[in-house]
């Protein structure tokens, strides 16, 4: 669902309107994370007394999403470059990584990083939060790789030829010509992946990370009131994903030079 929250003045440029939306949505997200315990504490039992737990759990969920999301985009970018590389070994490495991460359940991956990895490599004894970040980043990275790869492949060969014929180096051809066009194509899929990641971060619950779902379930178990606690949990996720899609829609609109979006 798309709430076009504020209607910016019609005489603002598309970029100005997008930037304004990004700034507002970003501030809203920060305000929510900072102050959400206050309105929650006004809620009746069993939510009110656990307001600060819900707020803390939400912050952990957003942290998981941000850390794993940023790492996941970088990993996805590297895997996409690997899969398109001229070096066969890199192609094989990237394909194997994507194959394994997309072909196994995220829950198994989370459990594997937390429980199995330390027995393989004792120095990799990570905290529950770090383990969840690693598993989530590796997982979303595999999906991002496919999104970025299809973006790179969507750039017409003539674009690279034009850039080369102007004497641009391989680096500038990539950074100024190929990459911006590829990202524009990849962006909607990347956003999709990050929104999924926000929800998938609830699997961190299984290794004891006290994130939003974990908080909701603890309160539910302690008060025997599943209805209000799980609804509160779900509504908080919904608010977070809504704010996120507002930001990503604004990013998409900002780069929509052809004005194809209404």
């Amino acid at each position: 669902m798309n709430f076009s929250l504020p209607s910016w003045p019609a005489n603002w440029s598309r970029q100005a309107r997008s930037s304004a939306t990004m700034a507002v949505a970003g501030s809203v997200l920060v305000l929510i994370l900072w102050l959400m315990a206050i309105p929650l504490s006004w809620a009746p039992e069993p939510i009110g007394p656990s307001a600060s737990d819900f707020a803390e759990g939400t912050r952990v969920t957003v942290e998981l999403t941000l850390v794993a999301g940023i790492a996941g985009v970088l990993i996805g970018f590297m895997a996409a470059m690997g899969k398109l590389s001229k070096v066969a070994a890199l192609r094989w490495l990237a394909s194997t990584y994507i194959w394994v991460m997309r072909g196994t359940p995220l829950l198994v991956q989370v459990l594997f990083v937390y429980f199995a990895l330390p027995s393989l490599v004792p120095s990799l004894q990570l905290s529950d939060f770090a383990s969840a970040c690693v598993a989530l980043a590796l997982n979303v990275g595999a999906y991002n790789a496919e999104a970025i790869r299809s973006g790179l492949l969507a750039v017409h060969k003539g674009q690279m030829e034009a850039a080369k014929s102007l004497g641009l180096s391989n680096w500038h051809t990539f950074i100024d010509v190929t990459f911006p066009q590829a990202m524009k194509v990849a962006l909607p899929s990347l956003v999709n992946n990050i929104v999924s990641l926000l929800k998938d971060s609830s699997l961190a619950y299984t290794i004891g990370v006290v994130e939003l779902t974990n908080v909701g379930n603890r309160v539910q178990a302690a008060t025997f009131q599943p209805m209000p606690t799980l609804i509160t949990t779900a509504v908080i996720y919904l608010v977070l994903t809504t704010v996120m899609t507002q930001i990503s829609d604004a990013v998409e609109r900002r780069y929509d030079v052809e004005g194809r979006q209404p």
Binding site: G158, Q159, A162
Partner: peptide, 9 residues
């Protein structure tokens, strides 16, 4: 070029 190949972005 035949297809112009201007940079669309």
């Amino acid at each position: 070029f035949q297809q112009f190949n201007l940079f669309p972005h």
